[in-house]
């Protein structure tokens, strides 16, 4: 089986290499991309889409298909991580550790005993990593809202400055990971369960693909946002700008949820009980 896979990889790789030979040389000024495409983008992007940031205009409007499938690739990565790593078998060892918060004493309770609920008196702690760090927790509490606001700024401001859905989504996911590291995996999962993470990642892809389908419903091509002009109540050029923002929001949601899913599965080896 492994040899068959290796042969397939070699054949596919050589086909790709053979295909890449037909490309024009890198940076060739006479190639079609440099002589027709780039000048068009540079001259017309502003009047077509009213987006000052050329990269965003090309990424989410002219090459919207490409970006949609990039989002789907990220979604598929999240699903693949769940399929490969997630284990649903109860592999927990017999005992759990609890901290009695008022006194700071750690209790070890066997499976035969009664586990206390998490409350202001008892707090469940991980067996191999026992963070009880007021400084790190307080800083995390202080800094996470600002990280999230900055992420929203990066998503919303992608029209004018470097940024966009992918970057903003990664920052949003990183805020969640910081929370999971400073507290523990269980409290992060309590904030955002595995189910809602997966639902959100598919919701992000759905927003992107649904925007394209909506454009088709209004009688124009797939992902031609100027079709949304009537719905949004603006002129077609501004509608393309707003359409970019809508798909960027979809990308941001998908990327954030996938990052969180990856962290949950990698940090706990798919068991989702005790994190790093």
């Amino acid at each position: 089986m492994r040899i068959v896979g290796l042969i397939l990889v070699v054949i596919l790789g050589s086909v790709l290499f053979y295909g890449s030979l037909a490309f024009p040389p890198w940076g060739d000024p006479a190639s079609p991309a440099s002589s027709h495409l780039s000048p068009y983008y540079i001259e017309k992007a502003m009047e077509d889409t009213s987006v000052p940031n050329l990269v965003t205009a090309v990424l989410a409007d002219y090459r919207g298909y490409d970006t949609m499938f990039e989002t789907i690739v990220i979604f598929a990565a999240g699903i693949a991580c769940i399929v490969l790593l997630r284990t649903f078998k109860e592999t927990e060892s017999g005992s759990r550790l609890y901290r009695h918060i008022p006194t700071g004493i750690t209790l070890k309770i066997d499976k035969k005993g009664r586990f206390p609920e998490d409350s202001v008196v008892f707090e469940r702690i991980d067996s191999h990593w026992v963070p009880h760090d007021l400084i790190v927790k307080t800083t995390c509490r202080l800094i996470v809202p600002f990280i999230q606001i900055f992420a929203l700024y990066v998503i919303a401001h992608g029209h004018h400055s470097p940024g966009g859905g992918f970057q903003g989504g990664v920052i949003l996911g990183a805020a969640m990971i910081i929370y999971a590291i400073a507290f523990n995996l269980r409290s992060a999962i309590r904030r955002m369960s595995e189910r809602s993470a997966v639902m959100l990642s598919s919701l992000g892809v759905f927003i992107y693909a649904g925007t394209g389908a909506l454009c088709m419903l209004f009688g124009l091509n797939y992902l031609d946002y100027s079709a949304l002009a009537g719905l949004l109540g603006v002129d077609p050029v501004t509608a393309r700008s707003h359409g970019i923002l809508i798909v960027e929001i979809g990308v941001g949601i998908a990327v954030m949820a996938v990052i969180v899913t990856l962290y949950y599965n990698l940090a706990s080896a798919g068991r989702h009980d005790e994190g790093l």
Binding site: V130, D133, I135, V136, T139, L142, I143, F146
Partner: peptide
Amino acid sequence: VFVFITSPTATHAIVDAGVR
């Protein structure tokens, strides 16, 4: 402002990890 908050915390966390 943010580096002033986060950088000492990071140093503290590294030292804490060393002690643990």
